[in-house]
């Protein structure tokens, strides 16, 4: 629940074929407890940016500050949810996965399992606490991943297209669930997507990126009361506005 500053961040990938820009001079800020979506055409550098904020990648230029402190490497102040269902540890039950972060803090077994159970309750999966990930559906696995990222109570939740691989119906359910979780926990969230409707549904503010090599094109504040109605005129207006900013690229995707 802390403010985040992204200051003039650029990253260049060094590959055998030469240098490839990942992102280019990205700057924006995120307020505490704000839900920010990053949208942009495929390959513009959304994942790169998120990985920099998570501490998996070090920017070539610029810096990230969380609560005024420069980010160096990974840390328990951030929770991360990836797109890939394979992110869960297959050798641990849902409960074991969710308790992992607390276990790393050295919390004693009973306490961490109680907390993990509460988190599973938040994503409505208490009944599946003892199931292994391969017995859960994709949507359920992503819910476990969200519970796992929240369990050790990080200030910031980073999500990289967590629902992109789900079918449309499940995806709608998941968006509702995430909006609900956010309302209850009030985490600062950075959420990457290239789905414009998803961004309008979830975000306080949407950061639109330009095509590769990506930088910030514009920011759009979503001034709609929650829970949002995806069929309302205002909702569709926002969607149209974002699509216009994205131009051809989004229309094609």
């Amino acid at each position: 629940m802390r403010p985040i500053e992204i200051r003039d961040v650029s990253l260049i990938y060094e590959t055998p074929a030469g240098n490839v820009p990942g992102v280019q001079s990205v700057s924006f800020q995120i307020a505490a407890s704000e839900f920010v979506c990053i949208v942009g055409p495929s390959g513009c550098g959304k994942s790169t940016l998120l990985n920099i904020i998570a501490g998996f990648l070090t920017p070539t230029v610029g810096e990230i500050r969380i609560d005024g402190k420069a980010v160096t490497g990974q840390g328990q102040d951030r929770g991360v949810v990836f797109q890939d269902f394979a992110q869960l540890f297959p050798w641990r039950t849902a409960l074991g996965n969710v308790a992992f972060g607390l276990e790393m803090q050295g919390m004693e077994k009973n306490r961490r399992e109680t907390i993990a159970m509460e988190q599973l309750g938040l994503v409505k999966l208490e009944k599946f606490a003892q199931s292994y990930p391969h017995h859960l559906s994709g949507g359920m696995q992503q819910r476990v991943a969200i519970a796992r990222a929240l369990a050790y109570n990080p200030a910031v939740l980073l999500m990289d297209e967590p629902f992109a691989a789900l079918d449309a119906l499940t995806r709608d359910d998941m968006q509702r669930l995430l909006a609900d979780v956010w309302r209850k926990t009030r985490k600062t969230v950075i959420y990457v997507t290239h789905n414009v409707a998803e961004a309008v549904y979830l975000a306080d503010r949407v950061v639109v990126m330009t095509p590769h090599p990506g930088t910030v094109k514009t920011e759009v504040l979503i001034r709609l009361p929650r829970p949002r109605d995806p069929l309302s005129v205002e909702f569709l207006d926002y969607q149209r506005q974002l699509l216009q900013h994205l131009g051809q690229h989004a229309a094609a995707g």
Binding site: A54, G55, Q74, G79, V80, F82, A86, R148
Partner: peptide, 10 residues
Amino acid sequence: LWLRAAGVMG
């Protein structure tokens, strides 16, 4: 992904 996930979880 497992290494990254475990890394952020400390």
